[in-house]
């Protein structure tokens, strides 16, 4: 192992490129474990973002002026500033105020807050496009506002919001690469590490790109399509 990692830069210097297969065998396990971390960051932040989207999307539609204003400020703030800035702020500035979070937690929090803000707008749009008659019918059946939301409106929004939410989730997967910059050992971090020791940039970043592509195209997107079909079936629109 050690000999090999000394040998690779040496061979490069000779101008004799090592084969891609040799590179792959050597570094695939490390990159795979990085990809697992990426998947974990993605899963946790997607859950957090989903919860935030729902809460703030509904708050945006509240009759209460204060609640609505709070949601608007939150959404505009997180959509108006850059994700990387939020990430650095949470990781480097919050500790100065006495709140220290692990890199993983900071990453999940920043991603969740950022994508939650985008998701909240999707939820708001979805709720607003449920036909007027559904609201009136629920009112006629003497349902309380909470009941109406929970049992009539929100289930119907799922089919409407899932396609845009799916797009957002793919964006989220791509955005997880940023957590490497606050030292979370994800796929991007591992790739940077291998690049720094071997300088096989084409191989290492090429492989990372392909892994991200496979995760998005052959794992995440089919899963989201399946969710869309499931939601459509649940409300009887299959």
């Amino acid at each position: 192992m050690a000999l090999r990692s000394c040998l690779i830069p040496f061979l490069q210097q000779l101008g004799d490129d090592v084969s891609y297969w040799g590179f792959f065998v050597e570094y695939a396990p490390k990159m795979a474990s990085g990809a697992m971390t990426t998947a974990m960051v993605m899963g946790c932040s997607a859950l957090l973002a989903a919860v935030i989207s729902l809460i703030f999307g509904l708050m945006r539609l509240s009759q209460n002026w204060g609640v609505q204003a709070a949601a608007t400020v939150y959404i505009e703030f997180f959509r108006g500033t850059s994700l990387l800035v939020q990430l650095y702020w949470i990781y480097y500035v919050l500790p100065l105020m006495g709140l220290t979070l692990s890199p993983f937690m900071s990453g999940v929090l920043a991603l969740g807050l950022n994508f939650g803000a985008y998701g909240a707008e999707i939820v708001r749009g979805g709720v607003q496009s449920v036909p007027r008659g559904q609201w009136e019918a629920a009112l006629a059946l003497n349902m309380s506002p909470a009941q109406r939301m929970r049992r009539i409106i929100v289930p119907q929004t799922f089919t409407l919001i899932l396609p845009p939410m799916a797009n957002l989730t793919v964006e989220l997967l791509k955005a997880t690469a940023l957590v490497a910059l606050i030292t979370v050992v994800d796929l991007m971090f591992v790739a940077k590490q291998i690049n720094a020791t071997t300088w096989l940039s084409a191989q290492v970043f090429g492989t990372a790109l392909i892994i991200y592509y496979i995760m998005a195209r052959f794992a995440l997107i089919p899963f989201l399509r399946w969710l869309e079909v499931l939601a459509a079936r649940k409300v009887g629109k299959a």
Binding site: K174, A180, M188, A191, K192, A202, Y212, R217
Partner: peptide, 20 residues
């Protein structure tokens, strides 16, 4: 392919691979 991979990785790819 370009749409479903992260900008950050692409940035590093272009920056480090071109000199190779």
């Amino acid at each position: 392919f370009i749409r479903s991979t992260p900008l950050l990785v692409q940035l590093f790819f272009v920056f480090f691979v071109a000199p190779q």
